[in-house]
Design a protein around this nucleic acid. Structure first.
Lengths: 219, 219
DNA sequence: GAAAAAATTTAGATTTGTCTAAAAATATTT
DNA sequence: AAATATTTTTAGACAAATCTAAATTTTTTC
């Protein structure tokens, strides 16, 4: 069985939304895919007949084992291409997502395996997200949200919560990127902002929203 | 203005058919695109309104300057990706075309330029076809370096890189002279040596230095 | 230069993925 | 638990790209 680019994008979106909570709603999908809820309903019915997901009207949706396998394949391709664009072609880490959105739909299985080998079987993409291997397995990284990082523990940035250009723009301006070493100096309960200090720089304050969008690991 | 993958495939097909004779017929297009003539007619009308070609009913079709520019851009992408697949990812030269058919539709301009730079601005793809540069210009090849001769293409020796007696001595010993017909059987990336076969003889291996000193033309 | 053959176009239908507007089901508020 | 609000689905329509069958134009043959 083969799938259109549109179908693949639905499956990928459901996969990502499912990470948080078990079932995914029509409205959530409508929001991330930028299509009307009515169109989402139509597509869900279609994907159900293709056995990629279980769906009952008004009850939300969940990927089947088959659907999950497909999703992992797409995510694998997306992240391998991101790695290629960043490491081989020297793109900025804020540019790679958009291009990978197209490359991820190229179908050749052999291409994916050759690319993986050429890149040296990388396990994380430029945003710190794990790259599924050819069996769909991902290395889990002991990564925590910056908002949860204990005060005065040195850590390094290992992931971001979204690929939005707004976030990436802010990070660029704040001079934060993958591997940046930092620690939390203080917490302000009023607005949940944090004072952080990047190694070798003066401390400064970041918002709760930004802190929640950053993942770090202890060093 | 942007174009669908289908529209791009029509433009590319017209471009290739146009190489032979000036105008292209509905039936020829129908044959290479594997669609019914009626469908071709519909698309030609559409592409005419987009000013990519000139078309009058029953009279065949010709690309406009705009259409030619678009076609060259697609051919450029196709051949750069073929070069990448063959030279970087070590695909067989018979496998690259099919995969490049998908990659050629990825839209990022910057990707094409970065890929071109990464590959070292190659001027010919693995089949020996010229790669248009970013302005759409192609090198016309009459004579090429033996090191660039695609595998399994019969060619004849048409020139040498120097007149040094050392070179000529070696050529005499190897039994190679002007007009000798040969083909490349294999390439060894380790030392860039080539296995070649002179028509009617057993294959043997020559060094990179020797290959670079020989010019051939396709026969 | 007709008649026959081939190529091309028109007309009307189909599939995919989308939309709007209205109806139905579910969730929230009071 | 009734009223209200929100979410989701249904019904019917539309654009893109295709098809088949029939009509038209061009080309070839005699």
């Amino acid at each position: 069985m083969s799938f259109s680019i549109t179908e693949e994008n639905y499956i990928k979106a459901i996969f990502h939304l499912q990470q948080e909570d078990g079932t995914v709603s029509t409205n959530d999908l409508s929001a991330v895919l930028q299509t009307k809820p009515a169109s989402v309903t139509d597509m869900l019915k279609k994907l159900k007949t293709k056995k990629l997901l279980s769906y009952e009207r008004y009850k939300g949706v969940r990927l089947s084992a088959e659907g999950r396998r497909l999703a992992l394949g797409i995510v694998r391709k997306h992240r391998l291409w991101e790695y290629f664009l960043f490491n081989t072609l020297q793109f900025g880490w804020d540019e790679v997502h958009e291009i990978a959105e197209e490359l991820e739909h190229v179908t050749s299985k052999k291409l994916v395996e050759k690319l993986d080998a050429f890149l040296g079987y990388p396990r994380f993409d430029p945003h710190g997200d794990p790259i599924p291997d050819s069996h769909g397995k991902m290395t889990v990284r002991q990564q925590l949200n910056l908002i949860d990082l204990p005060v005065n523990k040195m850590a390094e940035v290992s992931g971001v919560g979204s690929q939005s250009s707004e976030l990436l723009e802010l990070l660029k301006h704040r001079n934060i990127s993958m591997g940046t070493k930092l620690e939390v100096k203080r917490r302000f309960s009023f607005d949940h902002s944090l004072e952080i200090r990047i190694k070798g720089q003066q401390p400064f304050i970041i918002s709760q929203q930004l802190a929640q969008a950053l993942f770090v690991k202890l060093v």
